[in-house]
Design a binder for these strands. Structure first.
Lengths: 211, 211
DNA sequence: TGTACATCAGTGAACGCGCGTTCACTGATGTAC
DNA sequence: TGTACATCAGTGAACGCGCGTTCACTGATGTAC
């Protein structure tokens, strides 16, 4: 997985692959998923459309890789929230990071969570799919789950009757994902102070589960 | 707005318009929004593609009308939850109805909440857009807000510090919408018992805000 | 170091396809007298 | 009631477009001796 041991050829190959994905990401960011085409990508990196087939087998494969990268980027973004924060604040910031990522990359976020091909392969599911198939590790859910778990262990929140760790994390994910989706689709024209509303809401959520 | 006073011509006209929208809805339901085309709609109602332009000015206009209808349908679906339920249970059932609608009409739901053209015109926004523009009345949000409001008045839930009625309703909407979205996109392959999880989660949400 | 050859990375042109929309048209329906 | 005409609802063919993908090709890069 490291890039030592790679020949210059292989390195160039990977760099071009990355350039293709970065071009794809930029096109989506600028004009939405509808504008993403093999030709548009090729244009952007000064290749002919046919050239891309040296690096990816199909457009679908490019989108798959793009989604995978997107999930990883979102995960990395959330990991920037400092673990030094008290567990309850950490949870709130984790949620806000998720929402902010969506707002800053609305069309990218939409693509990631709307494309039916790139799904995480949770344990127990058919193993050995395409090599670039997404795994649990690439999802942002475990990060949210970690935040909840930490707050539970610190005694900051407890489970409401009938809910286990997983369900609680799922509930948290739902709030956060719902806020993100609503803000980038339904509410994106509205000028109300949703930043404040999101923060209050998440804080209330955490506090609502408190002791 | 009633259909008395309508000539047979006008009645036929409206019936064909409805047939077009129903065909569009069915196509989306069967194959997703990608499969929705003027030709596919025409095929389904035994028209030539050109014929549709008697009823709608463009494909975009059809999609706009379809989204509007979708929001109204979702609203109607939620209104089926009996108001005789105690306010806290009413809220839970309202949320579950929203989620079930999404699960039963995943691609339709996705279209409705993803299309950028058909947005609700909340008060204060530019009035006098296209006649078929969506208004606040066509959104499902007021129904959720009504549910929250009722629970508050009954003393079943109270506002957490800093949250008003609107923010509380927004928080409720976010959970519900997030659960719906996750279940039809990210989680649609997973076999875990999310029906149960959703119910527990919503009950916990309501109870968490209780006295 | 120089030469001969194999492999590689990328091109240009073309393929067939489905799309939204336009337009001159036609037969059916409705209206006026 | 019958006739002449206007309007309407719908058609068929064509337009130009952008798309994903294929394929024979070519010059550049790397390898073997």
């Amino acid at each position: 997985m490291t890039d030592e041991e790679l020949s210059p050829r292989e390195r160039r190959y990977q760099r071009t692959q990355q350039a293709i994905l970065e071009a794809a990401r930029a096109i989506v960011a600028e004009g939405g998923a509808d504008k993403l085409s093999i030709r548009a990508i090729a244009d952007r990196i000064d290749y002919s459309p046919a050239g891309l087939y040296e690096y990816f087998g199909s457009k679908e494969e490019i989108i798959g890789a793009l989604c995978l990268e997107g999930h990883r980027t979102l995960k990395r973004y959330m990991h920037q929230v400092p673990l030094t924060l008290p567990p309850d604040e950490y949870m709130v910031e984790l949620g806000l990071a998720y929402i902010h990522f969506a707002i800053q990359n609305p069309d990218y976020f939409l693509l990631i969570f709307t494309t039916t091909s790139a799904r995480p392969a949770f344990e127990g599911e058919a193993a050995g799919g395409p090599p670039e198939e997404m795994t649990d590790q690439d999802s942002s859910f475990p990060v949210l789950l970690g935040g909840v778990s930490r707050a539970v262990q610190a005694g900051k929140i407890h489970f409401l009757a009938g809910l286990g760790l997983l369900e609680t994390a799922y509930a948290f994910w739902a709030v956060v994902h719902g806020a993100a989706m609503l803000r980038i689709t339904y509410l994106d024209q509205m000028k109300a102070d949703f930043d404040r509303a999101d923060r209050l809401m998440l804080a209330a959520f955490v506090r609502g589960m408190g002791p």
